[in-house]
Nucleic acid binder design. Structure first.
Length: 568
DNA sequence: GCCGTTTTCGGCCCGACTGTTTTCAGTCG
């Protein structure tokens, strides 16, 4: 997949063009780059099929640049650009507070083209002399460099979300706050978020800004205005709070939820209908009269669209579906009747069988499966046969104590290099739920061994199908299309693992799997009670981003139907 | 450079905040 590679080059070219003062072209390059990032299909396949023009924002010129890159590994225009502007200069654009105009001045007047040079010049007070620069700009740039160096990587949703909730809870206590909501990519349930966006309605924004900017976890205040403030939290992520009047809440929530591409598409529809859409509402262009704005539903309705759930707002076809009233009714957390993947102290979990069952019963589940690791996972204390049988007795005991929840005997069984499983069939036969998972020997292509594992009649589902872990490990090599087809043919399920660093299958893979007719499960893969309680939210969010409905998710079935479908 | 139930040319989302200016440009989301 060279999708991300090419997207990166387009972003870089956009920066270079912008510094040269070229109009509009940079925006076109960025739009195409965003489309490439969102594209799940391999760009080379798309190019071969002559379907590059179907990618939003890719026209004749950009299509030929993609083809040029795939054929030669180079883009001629980029090479030419790099001759007139040094490449490192695009790094300067990454410094918060610096944009193309200021970078251009820095380069032309002082010859600055690296962050190090910039830092040196700012310390020597050389910047204040430049037109448009002043004392504060210089200080801001120094602060921006610090931020740049500590890195503004995206933060895992599973880590950022509790931070956001905690801020919301404390702001909510102020009586000036009427409505409050989390917006942005966090509301869209992206696996990782760049910042935290919080929206508040109030008639008295002042005290809210004060409270927010003085929270104990605030490391630095980047901006504090009358209705909008931006801070950096100690955890290293940016947080914004924005106060709007009550009648604009829906429009603002829509606007700040994004995504950018979804909003641009929406605005264009508004323009065509003679409206103007902003975070303050939907207005009639001629009379200026408010058409909608207090609720999101109202805004979508007036634009001729059915309501689009936040998780779908990525401009991946949801707008066309909303126009034709063909949007799927997404699965919700309340639809989930059971959790099929969790660990106890028998392998690498923190809590006992009884503790996990107690927690699951409190969550209101109709059923769960206890699925510790098989012996091959020595580092995780994989369970050999004798201990497995001991665990079954413990499960039976817990089952007696908690008759309201069915406790299934399961295992997360390792798929060995040759595709055989880490327990013999005579043991697998006695288990209610068998999760086949690849953990070891991921360096070569895993498709064949996964297909063989799916062929085993006792396997229920394939656990975390790609092995990808955010920031830790890329997906192992696997031909997912073949896996979808095999799972479909064999009647096996694929898992959406809800661990925040996994969410595996990913959103786009969920959609492909559903299109291939595969049924899925959403599990927590919990290693503690706390994870059992929290991670289903992320699993469901990922499935919703993949447009999953209850009929696609097996563990939305009530117990009786579920037992029937896993019986073999 | 892209794109079209207003257009194949002439638009391209739009408003808050900041700092450097004396009315606005640059940056950000």
């Amino acid at each position: 997949m060279k999708n991300l590679e090419i997207a990166k080059l387009f972003y870089e070219m956009a920066d270079l063009l912008e510094m040269k003062g070229v109009d509009w072209k940079p925006a076109a390059f960025r739009r195409a780059a965003r489309s490439l990032e969102a594209l799940s299909e391999d760009i080379e396949t798309v190019a071969q099929k002559n379907r590059l023009h179907e990618i939003p924002g890719v026209g004749d010129r950009l299509a030929s640049k993609i083809i040029e890159y795939l054929a030669t590994g180079k883009i001629d225009e980029r090479e030419k650009l790099l001759k007139s502007v040094p490449k490192e200069i695009t790094q300067l654009m990454q410094v918060p507070g610096l944009g193309p105009k200021k970078v251009k001045v820095l380069f032309q007047k002082l010859g600055i083209h690296s962050v190090e040079q910039l830092q040196q010049a700012a310390k020597e007070h050389k910047l204040v002399k430049l037109a448009g620069f002043g004392e504060k700009t210089e200080q801001n740039i120094l602060r921006g460099i610090t931020l740049f160096k500590t890195g503004q990587e995206r933060m895992l949703l599973g880590r950022a979300h509790p931070l956001a909730q905690s801020i919301v809870e404390r702001l909510q206590k102020r009586r000036e706050v009427k409505q409050i909501a989390i917006a942005g990519s966090m509301r869209r349930m992206s696996q990782a978020v760049g910042d935290i966006d919080i929206l508040v309605t109030s008639n008295k924004p002042g005290p809210i800004m004060d409270t927010f900017t003085t929270l104990p976890e605030v490391k630095a205040v980047l901006a504090k205005g009358s209705t909008k403030s931006t801070v950096i939290l100690n955890a290293g992520i940016q947080a914004d709070v924005r106060v709007i009047p009550e009648e604009s809440f829906g429009a603002a929530l829509q606007y700040f939820t994004g995504s950018k591409d979804h909003n641009i598409a929406l605005r264009n529809i508004a323009i065509r209908k003679g409206y103007k859409l902003s975070e303050y509402g939907l207005f009639d262009k001629k009379t200026g009269r408010t058409v909608a704005g207090s609720t999101e539903e109202g805004v979508y309705k007036k634009l001729g669209l059915s309501y689009v759930e936040p998780e779908m707002r990525e401009n991946r076809g949801e707008i066309e579906h909303a126009q034709r009233r063909k949007l799927p009714c997404l699965v919700t957390k309340a639809d989930i009747k059971g959790d099929l993947h969790m660990h106890t102290t028998y392998s690498d979990g923190e809590h006992s069988v009884r503790e996990m069952v107690t927690a699951a019963a409190a969550l209101g589940y109709e059923y769960i499966a206890i699925t510790d690791h098989s012996p091959l996972q020595r580092i995780a204390h994989g369970v050999e046969e004798a201990r497995l049988r001991k665990q079954w007795k413990e499960i039976d005991k817990a089952q007696e104590e908690f008759p309201q929840i069915r406790v299934l005997k399961g295992s997360e069984v390792d798929v060995k290099a040759d595709g055989s499983l880490d327990y013999p069939d005579r043991i697998l036969k006695e288990l209610d739920v068998v999760i086949a998972s690849v953990h070891l020997g991921q360096s070569h292509d895993n498709t064949d061994r996964i297909l063989r594992a799916l062929d085993n009649r006792y396997v229920t589902l394939l656990g975390h199908p790609t092995g990808k872990r955010y920031g830790l490990r890329e997906s192992y090599q696997v031909d997912l299309l073949r896996v979808y087809n095999a799972a479909h043919d064999a009647g096996k399920f694929l898992e959406v693992d809800g661990q925040p660093e996994r969410t595996d299958l990913s959103d786009t893979a969920v959609r492909e799997a559903i299109d291939a007719g595969v049924k899925l499960t959403i599990d927590t893969d919990a290693h503690s009670v706390e994870q059992l309680q929290r991670y289903m939210y992320y699993g469901v969010g990922t499935a919703r981003r993949g447009w999953a409905t209850t009929t696609d998710i097996v563990n939305t079935l009530p117990l009786k139907k579920f037992e029937k479908i896993i019986a073999r």
